[in-house]
Amino acid sequence: MKKTRSFFMIPYLAWILLFVLAPLILILYQSFTNSAGQFTLQNYVTYGTSWVYLKMSLNSFWYALLITIVTLLISYPTAYFLSKTKRQQLWLLLIILPTWINLLLKTYAFIGLFSQTGSVNQFLTFVGIGPKQLLFSDSSFLLVASYIEIPFMILPIYNAIVQLDPALVNASRDLGATNFQTFRKVIFPLTLSGVKAGVQAVFIPSLSLFMVTRLIGGNRVITLGTAIEEHFMTTMNWGMGSTIGVILIVMMFIIMFLTNDRKKKHREVMADEKETL
């Protein structure tokens, strides 16, 4: 039986090797080469000494953080009330449904909504506010990016809340805790794993969103994704593009590390820390 089990590991291992490890190694290798294919550290030096790239990294990080906060603020209450409703499967389906539609299509739909003659501006004109410049602003970028990412935040939080033993909540109330205390000391700490998973699922892809920065942000929002595209498509400096890719991967690992569900003991310590804050 053991033999057959390892036999069934082959497709998985082959997949990981071909489509995860091999590309990572290639990117890492490319990042240490110049356009002539020689070994060099120059790309990293350029990155580290260029104010443009550092500012862009900060930008990426900042926008990803904002997107994560916005989605979290909306998702947690949504997931919480979702777990209390009837017909949960139906509501869940409605939340998942938009993820079946192509990302570009959704983004283009927002162009139609936000443009000068779009439905939102028509409504604003109707109520007497008059048309406003909606596209190409930070707020519209944040809105669209959050819209795209929200299902990936709601689902893990919802799962964590559903798994929460209602007896614990009842016990907390029986022992005299107020609703707020129950939430702060019982519900939230016990669903923190869902929040962390959601943060990972939203923050990491948000770091490298780039079509939305152009289509909705009008390239007034510049993130690392923009630079990677430029280096691969225009300047054809694949080395520098790969270097930025490696930086992104490192940033992702840091996020993974910070939000990882480590040993249970550790989690309790962190929850305690939160309390003292």
Binding site: I111, N219, R220
Partner: peptide, 16 residues
């Protein structure tokens, strides 16, 4: 206002 690619056609036609 914006630095865009092919979408420029759509925007100009729609008076953006």
């Amino acid at each position: 206002k914006a630095i865009v690619a092919d979408e420029i056609k759509l925007y100009m036609i729609q008076n953006e």
